[in-house]
Write a protein that binds this DNA or RNA. Sequence first.
DNA 1: CTACCTCGGTTCAGTCATTGAACCCTGGCT
DNA 2: AGCCAGGGTTCAATGACTGAACCGAGGTAG
Lengths: 170, 170
Amino acid sequence: MALGKDYTGQDCSLSRGLELLGERWTLLVVQNALYGVRRFNDFQVRLDIPKAVLSDRLARLTEGGVLEKRQYQPSPPRFEYLLTDAGVELWPVIYSLSAWSHRNIGGEPPRLFRHASCGSGLLPSSDCPECGSIPPGEVEMYPGPGPKRTDPVSRAMNRPRRLLEPVVPA
Amino acid sequence: MALGKDYTGQDCSLSRGLELLGERWTLLVVQNALYGVRRFNDFQVRLDIPKAVLSDRLARLTEGGVLEKRQYQPSPPRFEYLLTDAGVELWPVIYSLSAWSHRNIGGEPPRLFRHASCGSGLLPSSDCPECGSIPPGEVEMYPGPGPKRTDPVSRAMNRPRRLLEPVVPA
DNA sequence: CTACCTCGGTTCAGTCATTGAACCCTGGCT
DNA sequence: AGCCAGGGTTCAATGACTGAACCGAGGTAG
């Protein structure tokens, strides 16, 4: 990750994971991909991230097998970044870290999550208390009490929706 | 986190969590604290981290309520850093990210984990497949097939042991 | 009493990453 | 012909990380 140096000498899987995912912005990009963001411009608008950094992060995540870059129309050529299966498997990591942060740092969450088919809120592990482990496609996201961004991408995301459902700004 | 700028403008808990935990080395420090490392020097030896950075990370984690600094002997004055309850709650986050990295990036793990009382390996969520959610104190860590560091702290850690049990280098 | 050792740091110059603004190119649209 | 959108690249300034050197309090061996 940062500073050209990797975590050489470290012997654990975590350090290898952090080389790919541990840089600034990277996990927020993955989070937004889970929320349905797919296009360069939409990531940029929603995250307020410098374009050069976004470009780098999308490229690394693509190399690393977390995202896949696809052309979604031939002309003008336009691209989107989709989560791979490996990328989707990051949902429990991202949710559990969000949940930890909410419990231990505070702040009102702008978005809440529930199991779409039974309506239960999720456990910190991202499991459903009634049904156990559930895939992200069955998780419904809906507005919570916290403050929300007002850019078009965030507004499109604030309507109740499943994870992974593509965001289409107005 | 990095660059004096925080993730201002972001509206999610995750960004607040990453301000505290998302810097280089921070999560590895917490991981090693879960593995039983407590002293400045032991972190430094095991992680090969610049002392200035370690000093900064321990201070931030202490401010942030993840660690607690304690003097464990009066003379000469010596200190240790213990995980708070909030810090211990990071175990599922760290384990699930490690497990993801192992599945999706590869490499042999130097350490494996099982539920001490029933002997089952852990699910990716860090739950026991037989007993469900278990506290870190009931997780036993034992050597896996992967390469291991040979510094004294790592060697002390490579004996089978519970999470959180203090590491005592030879 | 002196020299040396450990622990737990701090200081500092050099290197590398991030930022934000400016620019660029392709291909529509008017 | 001129303008716009999407998806980037370039570049100077700023800030973080690195590694080596240094430091001070308190033991301890000679």
